[in-house]
Simulated scan of single mutants.
Amino acid sequence: MSNNTITPVQALELSSLITPTEQGIASRVLAKTTGGNLTLFAFDKGQGLSEHSAPFDAIVMVIEGELTLTIDGQPVTAKPGTIVRMPANIPHAVEAPQAAKMLLVMLREITLNHN
C-alpha cells in the first residue's frame, strides 16, 4: 500500500503544501504506507483536536506558530523547530493558541512473518 501526494525527487517547502482554513483545521496526507502516515496540518487560532488516543506512536513537528499538546494530562508547548513524541495508547489533544502548522508522523508497528 502506498499513497503519496507529494512530488518525488524534489525539495518542497512544507509550509506551502497546505492552505489554512479560516476558523478551522486543514489537513493533507503527504504519504501513506503500511509503516505509517505523514500528514500536514494547519490550525487557525483557537482550533485544535479533541482528546483521543491511537494504537501507535505519533511524532509532531511544529513548522509555524505554537501548539499546546496535552499528553496524558500533561501540557507541552511546542514551537517551530521542536519535535514531540506522543506514545501509543495514551490520550492526547492539540490546541492552537495562535495560527500554526505541524507535520504529524504516525508510526505503525509492522510484524514480519518468517517461515
Rank of each mutant, 00 (worst) to 15 (best):
L17H: 04
E64C: 03
I71A: 00
T21P: 05
T7K: 14
K32C: 08
T5I: 10
E109Q: 15
A93H: 00
A100H: 14
L112H: 14
L14Q: 09
K101R: 13
V94Y: 03
A93F: 00
H114K: 13
N3P: 03
D44W: 06
A99K: 09
L69R: 03
K45L: 10
P97F: 01
L103T: 04
P75S: 08
P97L: 03
T5S: 12
N113P: 05
P80D: 04
L49F: 10
S16C: 13
T70P: 04
K45W: 06
T34G: 15
L112D: 11
L67D: 01
E22S: 15
N89I: 01
T39D: 08
K79V: 13
G81L: 09
A11W: 13
M61K: 08
H92E: 00
L40Y: 06
V76P: 01
V9H: 14
G46A: 02
A88W: 00
N37I: 08
N37E: 12
G24C: 07
P55H: 01
A100L: 13
T111Q: 09
S2N: 12
S15N: 14
S2A: 08
N37C: 05
F41L: 05
R28L: 10
D44H: 06
N115H: 14
L40F: 06
A100N: 12
M1G: 13
H92W: 04
K101P: 08
T39Y: 08
R85K: 15
E95I: 14
T33P: 04
L112V: 15
T39E: 10
R28I: 08
I18D: 09
L67A: 06
F43V: 07
I90A: 11
L69K: 00
